[in-house]
């Protein structure tokens, strides 16, 4: 189990740094004027924020020494990125000294090297697909994209779910029946149907995709939050807080939410894995949020008929899912423990 989790963390870490590991841009270049580091110029704001978020997540899950190492690493990378690009001279007669471990972006096609099996080329570690794209690069970037979408879905669903649950608990009872009916309806409709409908209306893209997946997850989170909040409203310490004349918003934010959201966080732990699975399934069916950006589902679909890399990719994805599930369960347990109080 520990090995599995380590493997998952490694893959997740690699995928968080995918834009810099799987890129044709060289890391270190020597030219007449000296050295330069083109790698620090790579990546847009989204890439960098994902990198920071992954670093923060790793720091949170790790023990103290590993935590310091991760924070330092992320900090140094960001520092270099900030100063590295400005001191970058124009590459004249440059010579590549260190290239990226996977010198492909997984998007560019190379029709001279299609369907390469695993182990033939030292550069294509996992071979190439039918259009000559590097499978290893696509795997790293796919894990990264799918994980990012899953986390985004979970964050949106948990945030909105908690707010809806609290509104239900605080609001007039009249609201409950219609909300309940709505929630039941939402849960009853298959995600694929909703997504198909939304795609025809709103088109593809990441926003409708995340919105649909998150909406489907809101009812469960809202319901558990509602139940906890209703119990809490009767708890003496909550009544005492109201009795102190504190503003209702303050009591909700500082007293009720920390206690009521435990169950929602526990659901979120499972939710991430569920969201990855949902995202993969939809991607496999060609209903993913992008047809060009690599994602897990699309990757499975593309590699399943490749002679050697297909099985390997599926296996690696399984490891990633299990590992993320395990890490998520661990994090949830830890936050549940943090909420415990001594008698």
């Amino acid at each position: 189990m520990r090995l599995l989790r380590a493997a998952a963390l490694l893959i997740a870490g690699l995928s968080a740094t995918a834009p810099w590991i799987a890129t044709p841009v060289p890391w270190i270049v020597r030219h007449e004027g000296g050295w330069s580091f083109p790698i620090f110029g790579v990546g847009d704001a989204v890439d960098v924020s994902l990198f920071i978020i992954a670093g923060a997540a790793a720091a949170w899950t790790l023990r103290s020494r590993g935590r310091i190492a991760v924070v330092l690493l992320v900090g140094v990378c960001l520092l270099f990125r900030a100063v590295g690009t400005t001191m970058d001279p124009p590459p004249v007669a440059a010579e590549i000294v260190v290239r990226a471990p996977i010198p492909y972006d997984g998007v560019t096609r190379d029709l001279s090297a299609t369907r390469l099996p695993v182990g033939i080329s030292t550069r294509h570690l996992l071979g190439t697909d039918a259009t000559g794209r590097d499978v290893a690069a696509r795997l790293l970037r796919g894990v990264r994209n799918s994980l990012a979408v899953a986390i985004l879905v979970t964050i949106v669903a948990t945030g909105v779910g908690i707010v809806v649950g609290l509104l239900l608990a605080a609001g007039p009872p009249v609201l409950r029946l219609p909300t309940d009916l709505l929630a039941t309806t939402v849960v009853a409709i298959p995600a694929i149907l909703v997504l198909l409908a939304v795609r025809t209306v709103a088109g593809g893209g990441i926003v409708p995709f995340v919105a649909v997946l998150a909406t489907l997850r809101i009812p469960a989170i809202a319901r558990v939050t509602h139940a906890s909040a209703r119990d809490l409203l009767a708890a003496p310490f909550v009544r005492a807080a109201f009795g102190l004349g504190l503003p209702a918003v303050h009591v909700y934010a500082r007293t009720i939410v920390p206690h009521a959201s435990g169950a929602a966080y526990a659901l979120a732990g499972f939710g991430i894995v569920g969201a990855i699975l949902a995202e993969s399934a939809l991607g496999f069916l060609g209903l993913g949020w992008s047809s060009t950006t690599p994602s897990l589902g699309a990757l499975l679909e593309e590699t399943r008929d490749l002679p050697s890399s297909g099985g390997l990719v599926a296996f690696l994805l399984g490891v990633v899912l299990l590992g993320i599930g395990s890490v998520a369960a661990d994090v949830t347990r830890r936050s549940a423990r943090a909420g415990e109080t001594r008698p």
Binding site: F242, L244, G245, A248
Partner: peptide, 9 residues
């Protein structure tokens, strides 16, 4: 609201 704090129990 804040009126309640005037009688503290």
């Amino acid at each position: 609201g804040s009126a309640r704090r005037r009688i503290g129990w």
